[in-house]
């Protein structure tokens, strides 16, 4: 191997993602081959492509591996309690309606402990962009069974194989009322970036599930190899079926993963419903929450 090829001869310019990340905190905590970093990169690219005012973007994360995302994005970042990212984000959105509020967290956090808040926020069509990184397991705490762990997959708390039927997340989101529902894997880096870009410009409860490999826990406990093996699995077994009926996109253990944009509707958001209703009922007596929020100037 040519040694000087290894040490790149040119002085390395700044990585293009630098403006979007807290570079002083890189390298991050995620394991080699974990897909979360790729999702973060796609999110940063989507922000760049939409050209939104980063000063008005908030990212809220809960607890878990994916829950560390808020700590790495150079936005107003909130690392909240386990399962409560969505209600916390609800407060941000209602407290200052002009904000673009996003939630990036994991499957255990958003639909495990946080499931109740997930379905209610979708029901209300709250104006939140929710990116759920699904690695089929509770990773941070050492590989316990999750509400998304496929049947017969092993986890540290289902050592004989999981017998609990998991959620079908797109179906859960769609049936709860989410107007935008999509699923990609973190191999689909272009489509995931476009999906996030598209979702940023939508309003209401936008839900994107991203399947990511978890080499250290899920893959190891199920002898599925490295993160790269996971990516290869997506390469071979992911099928893109836009508009698929969400009832048919459940995920079986090591079975094909149906990806695509399943739901893309337009429905008034919670804020719009509130404003139009109070406007109608109270007429000019109605004083809405200012876009800039309820901060009373000193």
């Amino acid at each position: 191997m040519n040694p000087d090829l290894v040490r790149d001869p040119l002085p390395i310019p700044e990585h293009p993602v630098t403006p979007y990340l807290r570079m002083e905190r890189i390298p991050h905590v995620w394991c080699p081959g974990c897909g979360i970093g790729t999702v973060v990169k796609c999110f940063a690219s989507a922000l760049e492509r939409t050209g939104v005012d980063l000063e008005k973007v908030s990212v809220v994360s809960g607890i878990g591996c994916s829950g560390r995302t808020a700590g790495y994005l150079r936005l107003d970042g909130f690392h909240t309690t386990h399962g409560r990212a969505i209600p916390f984000a609800t407060g941000l959105k209602l407290g200052r309606p002009e904000l673009l509020v996003s939630v990036v967290s994991g499957d255990g956090d958003l639909v495990g402990i946080g499931g109740n808040h997930f379905i209610h926020a979708a029901r209300r069509n709250l104006d939140l962009l929710v990116i759920l990184i699904n690695n089929f397991i509770y990773g941070m705490t050492g590989g316990q069974n999750a509400p998304t762990t496929p049947l017969m997959a092993r986890s540290s708390t289902m050592p004989f194989g999981n017998f609990e039927p998991p959620f079908n997340l797109p179906h859960l989101a769609a049936s709860s009322g989410a107007p935008y529902v999509a699923r990609w894997t973190c191999l689909h880096i272009r489509r995931l970036t476009w999906a996030i870009e598209e979702a940023i410009q939508r309003k209401g409860f936008r839900f994107i599930e991203v399947i990511a490999p978890c080499p250290t826990l899920y893959s190891r406990l199920n002898k599925l190899g490295t993160g790269l093996s996971g990516m290869r699995f997506y390469h071979d077994k992911a099928e893109i079926r836009h508009g698929a009926d969400t009832r048919e996109v459940a995920i079986g253990f090591q079975e094909p993963i149906i990806c695509g944009k399943f739901v893309d509707e337009e429905r008034p958001t919670f804020n719009e419903l509130m404003d139009s209703h109070y406007g109608k009922v109270l007429g000019e007596k109605y004083v809405p929450m200012p876009a800039e929020g309820g901060y009373l100037h000193g």
């Binding site: 310019p13 990585h15 293009p16 993602v17 990340l21 890189i26 390298p27 991050h28 995620w30 081959g33 974990c34 897909g35 979360i36 970093g37 790729t38 973060v40 990169k41 796609c42 690219s45 973190c186 191999l187 880096i189 272009r190 970036t193 993160g227």
Partner: peptide, 15 residues
């Protein structure tokens, strides 16, 4: 820049 987009560590990019 596929490598740049897929790298989970932000360790590679192209110009």
């Amino acid at each position: 820049n596929l490598c740049e987009q897929i790298c989970p560590e932000f360790a590679i990019f192209t110009l």
